[in-house]
Design a protein around this nucleic acid. Sequence first.
DNA 1: GTGATTGCAAATTTTTTGCAAGATA
DNA 2: TATCTTGCAAAAAATTTGCAATCAC
Lengths: 154, 154
Amino acid sequence: MPWKEKPIIIIIKKLMIKDVEQIRGILKNHNLKSTPQRVVIYQIMSKLGHASADMIYGEISDQFQSLTVATIYNVLDSFVEVGLLKRRLSSNNKMYFDVNTYNHCHLYSQSQERYTDYDDPQLIGMLEQYFGNKKLKNFELSGVEIQLNGHFKK
Amino acid sequence: MPWKEKPIIIIIKKLMIKDVEQIRGILKNHNLKSTPQRVVIYQIMSKLGHASADMIYGEISDQFQSLTVATIYNVLDSFVEVGLLKRRLSSNNKMYFDVNTYNHCHLYSQSQERYTDYDDPQLIGMLEQYFGNKKLKNFELSGVEIQLNGHFKK
DNA sequence: GTGATTGCAAATTTTTTGCAAGATA
DNA sequence: TATCTTGCAAAAAATTTGCAATCAC
């Protein structure tokens, strides 16, 4: 499906901490059984926006004694599978996950080890138009990842 | 340095297998002592364009019995430090390295585990112009990474 | 010769796996 | 209850480290 036929819908959803019932609903809508582990992990992901498995582990391990990394990876994978999360690229050999809300780009500074969302509907629109009109030989485009590298001014 | 002041120079260099003397010259120009390991690894990188440490190991281990992964990582790091290579983002928790020749984008298919260069001067030009005119608050832009996700048609 | 680089082996870090026990719909 | 999910412990995969031996200039 080229972008032309399936335009990207830009929905600005504020990331906010969701309550348990709300999350259970989201899980249900995505055909996932709602387990306490999934609820907690989704809650953390929606608070953090993006995180690696061990960041999540760091956030939870005290509140949720029994939860192991294996479960975290399981849960994250199940979320990716149904589209709740996206895998994020990283340049430090760790896998990051992103709350999948809307198309956005990222600002990244390797030296400062900072990574933030960058919201630019105009840019997204421009790219959408560009790739809508362009045919890529031998490649079926499903999305674009844009990362702006540089460094954060204080 | 905003892009406006430091326009991107697009130099299309064909990746080609370089001979040993040529590579020794390149290393010298970058203030790196020229060791056989560095020469071989640079040769492979310029053949492959992008690769992970173990892809390199796979290519060399028979010809170069004594070379170990530790050395490969050392050499790759030294190349990155002087700008001969760039670290590439990946979404499979492996670090990839890229021969740093010109600004280009990448096509990536996670399901097919394929990753190829995508050369699109028009796109680069468009982005250059866009970010040249745009001020990012609190962020000093030094470059953009673009990855087109999708899948390769046979 | 001197300082940088390599090889080695072991340690760390990150992610995955297999399977029994437990929870969910 | 039937199936999916979790916890656990161990394995695998990727990268890093420390140090002695070697090499490049």
